[in-house]
Amino acid sequence: MKMSTKKLIIILAAAVIVCLAVWFVIARLAPGGVTAVVSVDGVEYRRIDLSKVKEPFEFTVETKYGSNTVLVEPGAISVSSADCPDKICVHMGRLTGAGVPIVCMPHRLVIEIEGEELDAWS
């Protein structure tokens, strides 16, 4: 494997750009959805139809790992506070469509919005 350093840098830079582009496509262009699913440890905890939410409300997911307060607004869902050490889930902001889920790894909590193709049969 003899490659010039310059070539390696170009290949790696290209890889970074491709990855970020894919990420951007997943995050921005994913199909919209209305059903938010909150799950802990892969088990569904609560399912909310965001199109039927008129008034914002909060609920707390309390598990043996810790607690996260989830804020539900019309068409959006977010984590408003959590007692995990990194608070990444809080910083991730509001989730309005399918694509990238909110994850709180220390608490094994995932909030996803199901894409439209999944409810096609209903």
């Binding site: 790696l12 890889a15 970074v16 491709v18 990855c19 970020l20 894919v22 990420w23 997943i26 995050a27 799950s39 440890d41 892969g42 694509g99 990238v100 889920p101 994850v103 790894m105 094994r108 909590l109 995932v110 996803e112």
Partner: peptide, 26 residues
Amino acid sequence: CMLVVKTPGILAYLPVLIASGIITGT
């Protein structure tokens, strides 16, 4: 992560994780 939360949706993070690995690894 996949084994722990059993949610395939988090795979969406893979591209960012690879990109960040390349940058931080350098």
